[in-house]
Amino acid sequence: MNNYLPLSIISLGILAFATLMLVIAPGIEMARPEPPAGLQPYTVEEQRGRDAYVSMGCLYCHSQQPRAPEQAPDGERGWGRPSVSADYFYDSPHQLGTMRTGPDLLNVGARLPSESWHLTHLYQPRAIFEWSIMPAYPFLFEVKAEAEEGDVVVALPPEFAPAEGVVVASQEALDLTAYLLSLDRTYPAPQDGIRDDGYRPRGDAE
């Protein structure tokens, strides 16, 4: 152990190689992507709705990351194509989530484009799905004797409607619905998008 030069060169080389493979290469690969052509920034209303989505912890039951067909039948469920990193360009904080107690929501605006459906569902999920375990959000709504000018009335089956008056959506409920309807990443994925390729070998594109 008296020849230090090769030892130092080799150890520095190993360090440089590790830095290249573990830091520089992933950095280049995951460089901030351009927003895809089909993706619009959130409007003020949608962004307010997004803040409500974050603050109410929707993330704890709903993911926003459809998987590749090799991993889960998300495409058949109508949850959309596997997402790519560019799909989250305007999302901060991202709401990827891991729990799927409820369905994935990244494309809910495409598969359920009905504002009134969402309002009914937020007011009382069991008005539609009697087996649903999603909490109801009645505090986002107001019961009024009569709808006023500009009020959005929630459509409800008779057994869930209040005995008197009508259920009217608050601004927060409308914002949240606007955000849900804006969740639509059905445009074609960018060619260079980094995506979850499942177990498919690289190069075996469709």
């Binding site: 359920l112 009905s114 009914t120 459509a155 409800l156 089956p157």
Partner: peptide, 8 residues
């Protein structure tokens, strides 16, 4: 209590 057909 019904949404419109066209909304979906």
């Amino acid at each position: 209590g019904q949404w419109s057909c066209a909304s979906c």
